[in-house]
Design a protein around this nucleic acid. Structure first.
Lengths: 167, 167
DNA sequence: TTTAACTTTCAAATAATTTTGAAAGTTTAA
DNA sequence: TTAAACTTTCAAAATTATTTGAAAGTTAAA
């Protein structure tokens, strides 16, 4: 396999995989392209490489910047904007974990807490509902805590220790 | 808030959240319904509660059984089939982690290994590609190992220890 | 300023996914 | 057996998500 083929395979795999972390195909592919590119790319470059429209490129680049994993860079002497991605996989996963917690886990935890707090009227249906939603709340809360700690900057030492321990 | 409202809120939240672990709305809602129901439900019950068609119920119940988190149960004296979900959240997350690893992580790791093994021709583009896809491979591999260990039955003690440690 | 280069927005078009419902298939009671 | 009760399948319909492209908006060189 040579570079071009490998590149295409990587980008397309990353694209279909986007759903694993909740983003669409074009967005994941733009990220993949930037991730393996040795230098920043312009919107033009991205449109051409992925055969997508200008609007698509623009919107998804903004989405990636909102996720905090793609940045604008200024290339001296160039009028247009260039983009580059977070290249450090540790920082990348930290950022993704942080955003997923904020966007998905935390709102869910809030609702679980809410619904599990209904008054117990003594019926089987209510008892089961409270028991199960409480259990789910505790699970989500623990998962959120672990996720945030494991990927947090300050506690990075623990991650390394853990990884070694678990390997 | 009373039971009916709380139930609806839980089921609908779980539905939109399905994407977090890669399943569709109806599937997630069926799971939510079974998860809080004190007794097994028939396909009829599910269709009625969620206002979905027979075909939809049938296909998604099968999907949930494929994930290993919903089971058929036999209710004595009843002709039709009844369904119940995994009620233990620990077992539930273990099962989901196991399936996601098998369905998504492992195939990805395989491709990352493949594409990162292209021959280094010395160009900047190739060097960057190999470096970045290798880093991604290592990350995915570590994540897979951790995930599997953390949720594995045999090593359950470590989970508890860890959770305490990190809290 | 003016204007050309560039970026964003968003309604409409396209594509992908999900849902329906009825026919085909299966099971079990009589 | 037969037939009623029940489940599955799958093509077509409905819904949802994504993408396009051109007009509007912005920026900066001249």
């Amino acid at each position: 396999m040579e570079l071009q083929e490998a590149k295409e395979k990587f980008i397309s795999t990353w694209g279909t995989l986007g759903s694993l972390w909740g983003i669409n195909k074009a967005m994941a592919q733009i990220h993949a392209l930037l991730f393996i590119s040795p230098n920043p790319l312009s919107m033009e470059d991205i449109m051409e490489a992925l055969e997508i429209s200008r609007g698509n490129a623009s919107m998804n680049l903004r989405g990636l910047m909102d996720w905090g994993i793609v940045y604008k860079v200024n290339v001296p002497g160039e009028r247009k904007e260039f983009f580059t991605s977070e290249k450090d996989v540790t920082e990348l996963s930290r950022q993704i974990a942080k955003e997923r917690s904020r966007r998905e886990l935390q709102p869910t935890i809030k609702i679980l807490k809410e619904v599990s707090s209904i008054e117990d009227d003594g019926t089987a249906a209510t008892k089961e509902f409270i028991k199960q939603t409480k259990a789910m709340h505790d699970l989500a809360d623990t998962a959120d805590t672990m996720m945030n700690r494991i990927v947090s900057q300050e506690q990075n030492w623990i991650t390394k220790t853990l990884v070694k321990f678990l390997k």
